[in-house]
Design a protein around this nucleic acid. Structure first.
Lengths: 314, 314
DNA sequence: CCATAGCCATAAGCATAGGTGATCGACACG
DNA sequence: CGTGTCGATCACCTATGCTTATGGCTATGG
């Protein structure tokens, strides 16, 4: 009570000395365990004792080992806990730095989720097996951006063109709209070439999605080429859409990335004139350092998309 | 990976700076929160960042607040935990120092437990309400000493005379042996004075304890005065012994401290010649600093016994 | 019983870690 | 487009914390 009781002048150095002395049973042992001179340890312990206001070791003198006082035992317990905590902190920091552990939340939207994202996630898993990867899907850019800025998600795919000064955005490539036809149907028979005249869709009943992110873009784009969309069936499930096309309900306009091209029942054609293509963007919050895992994921996405996606024609 | 990654050059000072900056949102704010110059904080954070090998704050520049990076958030979490731990350490240390909290284990033996110890414990409780007091009772000194040296108990009562260089022993006083008689019995009628001729016990059937710490001493002491003990009833429960005396089974020799003198059914007489009295000792391990609560308890015991007990006649 | 050896405390000297104050550059804002 | 605010950096200086050297204490061996 009379002492200054300056508990907060304690530094880790002191705790390390405490632990070393307690373990070695001597100041000298602690000294060369820590690579200091004996005097240094003596001073560190003395400083610690004055900081806490009580003796921490009994020094019997002679060759007998120093022993902890009750106060010493108490403080040592806490020192050990603190040291542990710092060790796990170090572990987690390196994990975080290497992007190999922790939790990465990725924001995504429909068409990206189908083929592109699974491939990227698989690659990320290989690169960082201990990383927990979580996905959040939204229909619209602004929902994704909102979550991104709120810190709910660490990195997000967006639909381009899109601008937001609060985000750091990279373009991954373009995802052209294609027409999907039933293999045996008359339209597929008629246009066996690579492209499909967009105007042929005029008046044709089509299969589409419910009014959402993709579909709005498609409808708008179709109208600019003079075609008024006329959907006989709508589903947000890509498999269902493709199934309907296969069953002959009509053609569908889909982002290429959303199409399961391995399906033998359907044919995929580019449109001529093409619909204004969407670009695939990937974004993190600007100004703030992203999680290394997020950066890493972006890098993977970029290199992977360079192979898979067409580059934007500038 | 290329960095030195010197996690263990981190000191509390750094963590304090981290927490202050995170809380204030600016280096300047942290600076005058901690009573440093802005440059100092800047350097401390820089040092911390180089120690962990990554940035901890995003500095947007201009008047906008600095914000934590993911790494910063992670480290801050651990820093907070460490700070908490140190705070509770401080609390516990002061508790320990004042002897007002924590846990005190007292070693005791039969006759001390009856009247003296309860009074002392009550006084200790008043002085240190948050202190947990535990009692361990043994029959023999050596058991108590054993536990004391093993650290099982913090302070112990012993029966004197006793010597052990491994202990720091204080004498509390003497506990004379007295004879306890039924109030209405012939012996009590016969000897109404303060003392009772020890030889009158010759051949008288007596009440005693089972062979244990006290009883052995009594028997031995009786024999030195020429009386061969002849017990008709034995119990280790003092109440039972006293009850038997009251019922007229015979007199009993007891340590004065073990007698419930408020019992109207019994009379208490000093013996003449007296049996060699035992002294009451209190001991802590020598060489090692005792718990402050133990020291405090010893002090209380000494002052209290100065009032209650006869001093040893040297 | 004295000499010796091992250990911690202390003192003196010194290097440097870590502080201050001043200045510079970057960024938002009016 | 100045202006104000904030962080980084530089030069300087102080005080912290290390080292070496020495003295005192205790147990141990001849």
């Amino acid at each position: 009570m009379l002492m200054a009781m300056a508990f907060d002048e304690i530094e880790f150095r002191h705790l390390r000395a405490l632990m070393a002395v307690a373990e070695e049973g001597s100041f000298i042992g602690a000294a060369d365990l820590l690579g200091f001179s004996q005097a240094a340890i003596s001073q560190q312990i003395a400083g610690l004792e004055s900081a806490v206001g009580q003796r921490l070791f009994d020094r019997p003198g002679g060759p007998r080992p120093v022993t902890l006082t009750p106060a010493g035992r108490l403080l040592l317990k806490h020192a050990g806990a603190v040291a542990n905590r710092m060790a796990t902190a170090e572990q987690e920091m390196t994990d975080l730095a290497s992007g190999t552990a922790g939790r990465l939340t990725i924001g995504t939207y429909q068409s990206v989720s189908v083929q592109l994202l699974p491939a990227l996630v698989r690659e990320m898993r290989d690169a960082a097996p201990d990383l927990g990867i979580h996905l959040v899907e939204h229909d619209y850019n602004n929902e994704l951006v909102e979550d991104l800025l709120a810190g709910e998600i660490d990195v997000a795919f967006l639909t381009g063109p899109y601008e937001d000064s609060r985000l750091a955005i990279s373009e991954l490539g373009v995802d052209p709209f294609v027409v999907v036809l039933p293999t045996g149907g008359p339209l597929a028979q008629l246009h066996r070439g690579k492209t499909f005249p967009t105007r042929e869709l005029l008046g044709v009943p089509m299969v589409g999605q419910h009014q959402g992110g993709d579909q709005s873009t498609i409808d708008k784009a179709l109208r600019t080429t003079g075609v008024t969309p006329d959907d006989v069936f709508r589903s947000n499930d890509n498999g269902a859409v493709q199934g309907m096309v296969r069953a002959g309900m009509g053609p569908a306009i889909m982002p290429l990335l959303a199409v399961d091209t391995s399906d033998p029942g359907i044919a995929v054609r580019s449109l001529d004139p093409p619909l204004e293509p969407r670009t695939i963007l990937i974004a993190v919050p600007a100004g703030t350092t992203p999680m290394p895992a997020a950066s890493r994921f972006m890098r993977i996405a970029k290199t992977e998309c360079r192979k898979r996606l067409a580059r934007a024609a500038r």
